[in-house]
Design a protein around this nucleic acid. Sequence first.
DNA 1: CGCTTTTGACCCGCGC
DNA 2: GCGCGGGTCAAAAGCG
Length: 369
Amino acid sequence: MNDGCQWRKYGQKIAKGNPCPRAYYRCTVGPSCPVRKQVQRCADDMSILITTYEGNHNHPLPMSATTMASTTSAAASMLLSGSSSSSSTAAVPGNLHGLNMYVSDNNNNMNSISSRPPFYFSNNNNNNSPYSPSPSYPTITLDLTSTNNNNILNTSSSPPHSSSSHSNYARFSSRFAPASSLNFGAASEPATWGLHNGAGILNYGIGNVGRSGNAAHYRMSGPAAGPSSSSSHHNQSMLADSTMVAAATKAITADPSFQSALAAALTSIIGKNNNSSGKVVTSSSRGGGDQPSYLMNVKASGDANTAPSSTTSLSRTGSLSHHGQSAAGSGLVFQAPSSSSSSSSPHSYSMPAFTAAARDASTSPSEDN
DNA sequence: CGCTTTTGACCCGCGC
DNA sequence: GCGCGGGTCAAAAGCG
């Protein structure tokens, strides 16, 4: 996926748990630009690419990387951020509890590093795009650079690849709002992608409201608050215009493998932070409403000296597999890495828990290992 | 010829 | 201390 920057590959590695090699690239635009990116295919759906950016560019970005004219991304930004602005709004990345994300169609100049959010989904399944030659590869990109004020990272004082708790990953996590969570829709249920907090105040997502043959119909789902509510900066209205539906549908097309890829992408963050001061610590049920809700709590204290400890959660609702095994009442579903023992146990996961979540979402639990 | 990619070696942190 | 795994280095090969 052409993102407007020039990259030089400097390494490739087979990572555990994924037969596909992970490729390492450096930015070659600047003489000593510290920005790097990793590209890897999703283990569960090799048509999905996961790209992770890390570092700050120390040079002006090329024009191709600074132009942003994506109405789709703007719409999707609103979708996931809860903004009520119309589609004429400039492409301002959504910012919800510190987690910026939006859905993007790669055909719409989704090439800007300076203005895109750090976490976005791209489905470049339009072969007319000059940036997506041949096959269509939906991609999930984690942008850990800090080239605009909307990014949640600031890695300027971090060494490019610190593996200590001072890494940018730790700060990434530390800036999650304590109660924010990412809502994984159940694979066998209408997907509700979006963010909500522990109290269920914010729950923007994309709901599959019906199927006709193979055609899925999506709607935007929001909280119960009225569309004109503006009492808080988290405007809770949703605009389900056609642009948003189109963007949302594209993002959901890969469901449930989309979930897997997202989980794997998150794994790349959490895995970095899997140390004594910040790790996936537990999993628990935390039913907060009428439907079962399983939250995977991630404690990330980040920089032990400066950042207060915070907790973020991954949650998914509904059943956990395609095979009818409901997780309701089953209690612990995800096992924390700290108590797992590699792959020897059928209920332990060598990968961080987010990968486990992905497999739960798309395969039989008995296939996990 | 210059730049990029490939690929095995190397480094280092972490867990046992 | 040792092995493992992720990330990087650097020489060789590839390519336009």
